[in-house]
Nucleic acid binder design. Structure first.
Length: 228
DNA sequence: CACCAGGCAAGTA
DNA sequence: TACTTGCATGGT
């Protein structure tokens, strides 16, 4: 069995266990992008509050936020944590949007995916995961989003090295799986869902979540029933 | 009380 | 280049 078949098999076992995750939980591409920045190293629940607060302010449009003073913006997104830094990052993105596309988000999203990726990565505050989240979940461009859970799960299973970086991990998926937006969308969301139940104790058991019971006290044991 | 959450940039050696 | 630290709220 090739890597792609393994990865698909894992995908199906995750999907069978957890079902569709309905990502991204945002109404518009704009909301997806703002959420992608706010959710950096932060639980989604806290991000939702910040987005609700932005909506309640009546400023939740590209121009509305572009025109909002940064200290006001920081207070509005307070609940998402790192609010001073994130206010700056939102401003950096909005500055980019108005500079390059005259504030026209549709124009930005129509750009060639890989070109847009390069541009986004030059915006201070947008790293590979945030940029790829924007490409996949806002622009619909088929690129695989990698996060800490992805590395943890698939290195424990031996598909990548323990110290594999973002690009190496992404390459595994994109060279093994069909380049399909819907597959990438659901797979990443499922990885996050599974990751939440993963063992974080040290020393890490090698093949979580399959032999998760190595840790007696572990809660939320996942039985995904792999058979290879 | 400690540790984590859908990261990233900047500083240090 | 390879590590380390700052950022900060809210949940468990």
């Amino acid at each position: 069995m090739g890597k792609g078949e393994h990865l698909l098999k894992i995908y199906h076992s995750f999907f069978e266990r957890f079902g569709p995750q309905h990502w991204w939980p945002g109404d518009t591409p704009f909301e997806v992008i703002i959420g992608a920045i706010l959710t950096q190293n932060t639980s989604w629940k806290n991000v939702e509050r910040a987005i609700n607060s932005l909506k309640a302010s009546g400023r939740f449009t590209p121009k509305g936020l572009y025109d909002t003073p940064i200290d006001i913006l920081a207070q509005l997104i307070r609940s998402s944590g790192y609010f001073n830094i994130k206010a700056r990052r939102l401003k950096n993105f909005l500055f980019f949007l108005f500079n390059e596309y005259e504030g026209d988000l549709g124009a930005m999203l129509k750009e060639d995916g890989l070109k847009l990726r390069d541009k986004l990565l030059k915006v201070n505050g947008l790293g590979p995961e945030t940029a790829d989240s924007i490409l996949l979940y806002a622009a619909g461009f088929p690129i695989f989003v990698v996060d800490a859970y992805t590395k943890r799960i698939f290195s424990r299973h031996g598909y990548i090295k323990g110290d594999a970086d973002y690009h190496q991990t992404q390459t595994l998926f994109m060279e093994s799986l069909p380049k399909n937006e819907d597959l990438y969308n659901e797979y990443h969301a499922l990885i996050v869902r599974v990751g939440k139940d993963l063992c974080k104790k040290k020393p890490l058991c090698r093949i979580c979540p399959i032999e998760y019971d190595l840790h007696k006290k572990a809660k939320n044991v996942i039985k995904v029933g792999y058979d290879w």
